[in-house]
Design a protein around this nucleic acid. Structure first.
Lengths: 271, 271
DNA sequence: CGATTCCTTGAAGGTTGTCAACGTTGGTGG
DNA sequence: CCACCAACGTTGACAACCTTCAAGGAATCG
């Protein structure tokens, strides 16, 4: 079997796994949550995974001095809780940022059963890898970029992820995070987040007002996120690879798998 | 099936998966690498995973301005490359910190085959979750602790992981990182890493000289890592849970799985 | 034993945190 | 409808932490 053949087979199997897992999620009726509720992936019964149909949520870790560090942010279409099901210690909680529509796979041994199906197992591994890559990007951004770069990285990341899910078309989207939460996510204080947002707005790069993000200068924003001080101002045609994630939408016919955007393009957050 | 029953079954299956994956690793003869070599998980042929028998390595991400951010550090016993095999973009590389003894599972479709075995699939998911929890801890530390806290967290983390693998017994271990690399890992400059290490040494909390770490005051170090300014100076008996990872060694008979420390305790870095 | 890399330290300056105050918004109940 | 309250947003002054820059010393490797 040639490399490209098995690569294609892998892609197909991942798409299959996505469908199968989606079917398992459909077994139970969807639920809704209010803003400010905890997804008790740890408390009530461990080994629960969620599929976000609509709404945002964030995963956080608490320190004894009572400030919380946000370690990941989930958007519609994301699967939540996979990293925790096999872990021993709870220690991390997930809280809603908006009201939420979710599908749930419950039961303590659900994951064991899911793993029996190879395509689902592969897709779950892909999902775990996807979350890992998000974390790696965040670590790199926080540890080597200043406040402007971190903000730019975050705003771009959400932009790309929403576009991939066809949840935004223009250069604007809704961001249900308070500046306090942005600070907890990027390792900054509210005051400084506010200052930097102001400066980005004054420079006409991006605006954030009333939870609404508008990207005014995508090129500049990308430069900031890359820590690339002098713009090479290359043609927009070369604007792919904005920060790391897979290209959004238009170039789906490639070697590497992208189950997040299946062949049959459904309107909203299909698994 | 009661919850505790399936929990026990899960633990057993994870131990089984660890053994099975270990067997797959043994299929090919172990290899060695020199210090400063790249584990080309991306270049030469994707879909390669490694098992570290001996030696350290680090995963990093490069920025255009040529400084690199270290996103994870691998110790003996760790499995490297799982997060990358299913990903589309290379973008992250792994480099050795010491000379390395490794086992390799190659072939493009290796992971697809591995996932056919449910216990291996479960164990791989557990490994991915373990790496994710490391990343989450790092994000939390970098985004909400100052330099002292970050250093303390890192030194404690290595300490716990080495103890869990029975690679150190006393309060001392070998740390094959330069201060430059420590800075790249924690988001600090060399100069500041040096200064903080000096202050930690002057306060008789921990020393790092010639790549040798000696923990002098475990309690203080733990406080720093927790951002817990005033020591409650509780009895040492309650010293568990140093930072997040699973308790080292002595309380293995618990509900939650810990395949990293199997029933039959082998001397060194068994999978 | 040269040459590179790493460690170490000081001084100066910048980014960010802290603190405080006030304006704004949104929800609640009188 | 308005008063109230709580949470959030905004801004300024100041301090602290950390970076930058520079230079000399130590260690490591071919």
């Amino acid at each position: 079997m040639t490399q490209s053949n098995s690569r294609v087979a892998l892609r197909d199997e991942l798409v299959l796994g996505r469908r199968e897992l989606s079917a398992r999620f459909h077994d139970a009726p969807p639920r809704t949550l209010e803003r400010g509720e905890l997804l008790v992936a740890a408390a009530h019964s461990r080994n629960v995974i969620y599929h976000l149909i609509a709404g945002w949520a964030y995963q956080f870790r608490e320190f004894p001095d009572s400030d919380r560090a946000i370690v990941d942010i989930y958007l519609p279409g994301d699967v939540v809780g996979l990293d925790a099901v096999l872990g021993s210690r709870p220690s991390e909680k997930v809280m809603t940022l908006t009201s939420l529509a979710i599908e749930v796979i419950d039961a303590t041994d659900a994951l064991v059963n899911l793993m029996t199906c190879r395509s689902i197992a592969l897709y779950i591994a892909w999902l775990l890898g996807q979350r890992q890559r998000r974390s790696d990007r965040l670590v790199a951004a926080i540890s080597s970029l200043d406040a402007r770069g971190r903000l730019a990285t975050m705003l771009l990341d959400f932009y790309v992820r929403l576009r991939r899910q066809r949840l935004t078309t223009g250069s604007t989207y809704n961001l249900p995070l308070t500046q306090i939460q942005i600070g907890a996510y990027l390792g900054l204080t509210v005051a400084h987040v506010n200052r930097v947002l102001r400066s980005l707005r004054d420079e006409r790069i991006v605006t954030l007002e009333k939870h609404c993000v508008t990207i005014l200068d995508l090129e500049q924003l990308t430069r900031l996120a890359k820590n690339d001080p002098i713009a090479r101002s290359n043609a927009d045609g070369n604007e792919r690879s904005m920060n790391e994630p897979m290209p959004p939408g238009d170039q789906l016919t490639r070697m590497t798998p992208d189950p997040g955007q299946p062949g049959s393009r459904r309107p909203a957050a299909s698994l």
